[in-house]
Each structure stands twice: as structure tokens, then as C-alpha cells.
């Protein structure tokens, strides 16, 4: 029998999806708005893993004439990613209830 594999989401991934919301943002913006929770070195690894899971999508910024350096990458949460985050949040809330409250 085939078992359905449920997607997993960490607290950092959940926070990144919160910070992204429905906007498109750069990695550095996410680090700055996290207030030190997300580190600058590890954010790109986390974002790449989230993209592989389908939680977000990314594209390179459009280059303006005279721009120097590598083009930066913009990230946007997918509807699937937001749905997984919301589902896990509901699950966490439900599991946090005491037996008496759950009835």
C-alpha cells in the first residue's frame, strides 16, 4: 500500500513564509525583517530547500543598465507553501489544547 508523504515545515520555514506573505522580497530583506532570528549565511540554504519543496518560487531581478555585481534573487511564497504553513499552524494549535479544552 502506498503511504502518502506529508510535507514537513520547520519553524524557520514557517517564519520565512510569514515574512514573505504575498509579497516578493530579497533574501537580505527577509534577514533584516526577522530581527536576528534568521542568519544571513543560512537563509539562502533554507530558501533553496523551501523552493525544492514547492513552498516558494524565485527569480532573478531585472537588470538595470549600469548595474554591477550578480543579479539578486527575489522570493515569493506559493499558495501551496502558505497552505502547508496554515495547516501546520492549525495542527499545532489543536495539539496545544488541553484534553478538557478540546472537548
Amino acid at each position: 500500500m502506498n503511504e502518502m508523504r506529508l510535507p514537513s515545515i520547520s519553524s524557520t520555514e514557517s517564519l520565512l513564509l510569514d515574512l514573505l506573505g504575498h509579497r516578493e522580497r530579497f533574501g537580505l530583506e527577509l534577514v533584516e525583517s526577522s530581527g536576528g532570528t534568521i542568519k544571513r549565511g543560512s537563509v539562502y540554504v533554507t530558501l533553496a530547500r523551501m523552493e525544492a519543496k514547492g513552498f516558494l518560487e524565485s527569480r532573478q531581478e531585472e537588470r538595470t543598465p549600469g548595474a554591477i555585481g550578480l543579479p539578486r534573487r527575489l522570493y515569493r511564497a506559493t499558495p501551496y507553501g502558505l497552505k502547508v504553513r496554515d495547516a501546520y499552524r492549525l495542527l499545532r494549535d489543536a495539539l496545544a489544547l488541553k484534553p478538557a479544552e478540546a472537548q
Binding site: 533574501g27 544571513r40 549565511g41 539562502y44 530558501l47 533553496a48 524565485s58 543579479p71 539578486r72 534573487r73
Partner: peptide
């Protein structure tokens, strides 16, 4: 890996 991890880190650093 370069496009998704190292490249953006360098780009943000340069920016």
C-alpha cells in the same frame, strides 16, 4: 546550488 544558494549570497553581499 550555485544559482539558488551561493549566487544570491554573493549578490546580496555585493549589493
Amino acid at each position: 546550488s550555485y544559482d539558488l544558494i551561493v549566487g544570491p549570497a554573493i549578490a546580496d553581499l555585493q549589493h
